[in-house]
Amino acid sequence: MSISIGGYSFNNLFLEGKMDVFGYLETVRYRYHLNAVDLWNAQIAERTLPFLQLYGESALRKVKEALDERELHLVNIAVDTAHVWDPDPEVRGRLHENALAHLKAAVLLGASTVRIDTGCQGESAFSDEAFDFIVGTYREYCRFAEAHGMRVGPENHMGPSLVPAEMVRLAQAVDDPAFGVLLHLGRWNEQAEQGDALVAPWAFHTHFDRKTVGTSDAPARIRMLREAGYEGYWAIEHNAPAESAYTEIELLLAGVKQHLHEAQPTDEERADA
């Protein structure tokens, strides 16, 4: 099954000094027996805010070696502190530099997709100024991504990206095959019932959290995405407490596996196809 575990799921173990990026790769490969990971950039960066600064090239190459040794596919890098819009032009410039550094790192590490958020935290719609800038910047990132066999785009994570209509408007405006959305299933501030389906045509990766794993309609969501053409991975992103992280993630993995099994077409449906 095409399942992964988002690196943020182990954040509390990282904070307690009980796991580093290599422990994460080892855990995903040999504890949970998966063949794919999606990194959170804080796992490969200095945790100094406001901007997470990536490790140097030699350190990143060691991460790449570890991925290859374990035969792990890097399906996504979720990048924080590199979102596109900030009202301060100087901050926007630094965010842009950080985004480009992460895109280059994604090439080195062999990532298939990169999540870079829109920004506009606290807003429910893009202003005209922000929208035009965000569209232009994603088009720039898409040119780089396409040249290196990747896709890039936001997650429904902050501000207007939590509004399905705004995400659709953005995707249609960028209008680039290298653009996509990391779809965090069910996480919407508006149109919660329709949001996943509206954005499904642009989904390049997915995140399940505890809430969505626990819903009875999860198999229907999976089938809807597949019918929309989604062929990517199904990842867990769960902010697990350090003391119970391994067990909680194992339980969520079991839930996702069950949902994927239930989402398979029946014999009758296969015959009709």
Rank of each mutant, 00 (worst) to 15 (best):
G214E: 08
I77S: 02
L185N: 07
P201A: 01
L162M: 13
S4C: 13
D209A: 01
L108D: 07
I236T: 07
P164N: 12
A235H: 05
G93N: 09
I3A: 04
N35Q: 12
Y32C: 07
E26S: 09
A42F: 07
N35Y: 08
D196H: 04
E166W: 02
F133Q: 11
D176Q: 05
W202H: 12
H33C: 10
V163F: 03
A59E: 15
A197C: 06
K64F: 00
A235Y: 05
N156G: 04
G110V: 04
F126E: 10
L74Q: 11
F22I: 05
G122A: 03
L185S: 06
I222H: 10
A192H: 06
T113G: 01
H73R: 15
P177W: 03
C120L: 03
V63P: 10
D117A: 11
L39W: 09
V163W: 01
H33V: 05
G159D: 12
D132C: 00
A254M: 08
A82G: 13
R115N: 13
D217H: 15
A218C: 05
Y24P: 15
N239L: 11
L182I: 10
R115S: 10
A106E: 07
P89T: 10
T81H: 02
D128M: 01
K211I: 08
V63F: 14
V256A: 12
N12R: 15
K257P: 02
V37S: 10
I249C: 03
G180P: 05
Y141H: 05
S127V: 04
Q264A: 09
R221Q: 14
T212F: 00
Q172Y: 00
P87I: 00
D80P: 02
S124D: 14
G122F: 01
D217K: 08
A242S: 13
L25I: 02
T212Y: 02
G153Y: 09
W40N: 09
G232I: 04
D68Q: 10
M167D: 04
E227F: 00
R226Y: 11
F22A: 03
A147N: 06
T215E: 15
A66V: 02
H259F: 03
L34F: 04
H73A: 11
P154W: 01
D267C: 01
T247L: 03
V28F: 05
Y138N: 09
G159S: 11
W234G: 08
L95S: 08
L100R: 14
L49H: 11
E166I: 02
W202A: 05
F133C: 05
I116P: 15
A263V: 07
A171G: 14
S9M: 03
T48Q: 13
N98I: 01
F131E: 06
G119P: 11
E140F: 03
A203L: 04
M167G: 08
T137W: 06
